[in-house]
Write a protein that binds this DNA or RNA. Structure first.
Length: 394
RNA sequence: GGGCAGAUACCCAAGUGGCCAACGGGGGCUGACUGUAAAUCAGCUGGCUUCGCCUUCGGGAGUUCGAAUCUCUCUCUGCCCA
């Protein structure tokens, strides 16, 4: 498959309008590819990476990536998250988050070639008259057509009026940037299309719109930090590898397509192999390795894989065990030690875990919740798959 | 502006005077098993000086021997009418 066809199809759902975009790409137009960045959440995960990788693909073909920082939007607050509705981000916070963001995306795209802009620059000066003008391009029925809104409306969930304005703001960004293409997740389709509507209203050629597949999280729901099912780009290699291993088996193939550079032909071969009943674990390990390699390099990925094989598959002790500092030698109630070690949140929970047979000290199971532990330097405490090594003052 | 309904633990959601630290899901943790931290099955999931005690059911005040459950008030949300 040639590079252009790959960009247009791999991990993508919709391309509006496909022929139009393909024509422009084939005849060598240098396109401005827009993507909106939310400065409220600097922690990026693999789900975000799918879009960023798509941007990278455009970049590799010589197109310009235009990243819009939604500082204006951030000051109003993300409407989909009620708790932050009134949360205002200070300028410092936006810059702080942005610095983090740049660090993270530089793992995927060439940040030095990116054209950055802040949407407060053009959204801020808009007058009420302008906003009404923008709003006149849409109807309430169109807004309510959005699945998101319909669901919330019929479920009796609140919808802030300002939430209707989000697509307008995002769409106006496209006008201001004169973007040729905008990329986003499938849930962004409506907002992306709003860009086309407004660009047309301003006499510009409407941008092409591309949505990428939604990556599912560890639990099969959409990958999202708030669901706690995400693999963060910042995750240490061992965690990243381990989390991929806990993906449901049926996500192995989609994840290969969305999160790695393995050619589609090879992925098809793996899929065929899985059909024959090969143990999925083998390919999941390959997947975990590839993904970890992308963000941490081959050496780290190799170490993560070895750690997994040792700790999970062979159930041996990890090489690096965090310390728990105790301020005196002698006898300690086991529950106190577990809490100090951060292995349980409370003594009640600690007792419970002891009763469940989850607690081992130097490989000996502790079964009495009132057990008094005579602590020793270097003693290893284990709860489930978590280990702590006791250190005493010298 | 008026009328009605609702606010329960991390999330959803039962409970309408004592049997409620509060049914059931989900999530999380642990155990068993395994092909992995998948799947499946089981236990646990407010705190503590744990055969008992203490603090929870939007906030505050009250009725009662006793309240998540009744009353008043405040805050927030949804629906209907305008």
């Amino acid at each position: 498959m040639d590079p252009i066809a790959t960009v247009l199809s791999r991990a993508t759902v919709d391309v509006v309008v496909r022929e139009e975009l393909e024509t422009r790409m084939r005849r060598g137009d240098k396109l401005r590819v827009k993507f909106g960045v939310d400065p409220t959440s600097p922690a990026l995960h693999l789900g975000h990476a799918v879009v960023l990788r798509k941007l990278r693909a455009f970049q590799d073909l010589g197109h310009t990536i235009c990243l819009v920082i939604g500082d204006f939007t951030a000051q109003i607050g993300d409407a989909s998250d009620k708790t932050s509705m009134r949360q205002m981000l200070s300028e410092e916070e936006v810059y702080q988050n942005l610095a983090n963001y740049k660090k993270q995306i530089s793992k995927i795209i060439d940040e030095s070639k990116v054209e950055w802009s802040y949407n407060a620059d053009w959204l801020g000066p808009l007058r009420f008259k302008d906003i009404v003008g923008l709003a006149a391009n849409f109807t309430v029925a169109q807004m309510l057509e959005r699945e998101n809104f319909t669901n919330r409306f019929s479920a009796g969930q609140p919808i802030g009026l300002h939430e209707f304005l989000y697509p307008l703001m995002q769409g106006y960004d496209s006008v201001a940037l004169r973007s040729d293409v905008e990329v986003g997740g499938t849930e962004q389709l409506f907002n992306l299309l709003a860009g086309r509507t407004l660009q047309r209203a301003f006499g510009q050629q409407p941008q092409s719109v591309m949505t990428v597949e939604l990556l599912l999280g560890l639990d099969g729901r959409k990958m999202s930090k708030s669901y706690g099912n995400a693999i963060s780009l910042d995750d240490p290699p061992k965690d990243m590898y381990g989390k991929v291993m806990s993906f449901p088996d049926d996500q192995i193939i989609p994840c290969f397509e969305l999160c790695t550079d393995i050619p589609l032909e090879e992925i098809d071969a793996i899929a065929a192999e899985l059909e024959t009943g090969t143990n999925p674990m083998v390919y999941k390990k390959r997947l975990a390795f590839e993904i970890t390699k992308l963000y941490h390099g081959a050496a780290q990925a190799q170490r993560a894989q070895e750690a997994f094989e040792r700790e999970v598959q062979r159930k041996e002790r990890p090489v690096d065990i965090p310390d728990v500092m105790l301020d005196r030698p002698g006898e300690w109630p086991i529950a106190d030690v577990l809490v100090l070690a951060g292995l349980t949140k409370s003594k009640s929970e600690a007792r419970q875990k002891v009763l469940e047979g989850a607690v081992y000290v130097d490989d000996v199971r502790i079964s009495d919740p009132k057990h008094l532990l005579v602590v020793r330097n270097g003693m290893v405490i284990k709860l489930g798959r978590h280990y702590r090594r006791v250190t005493l003052p010298t």
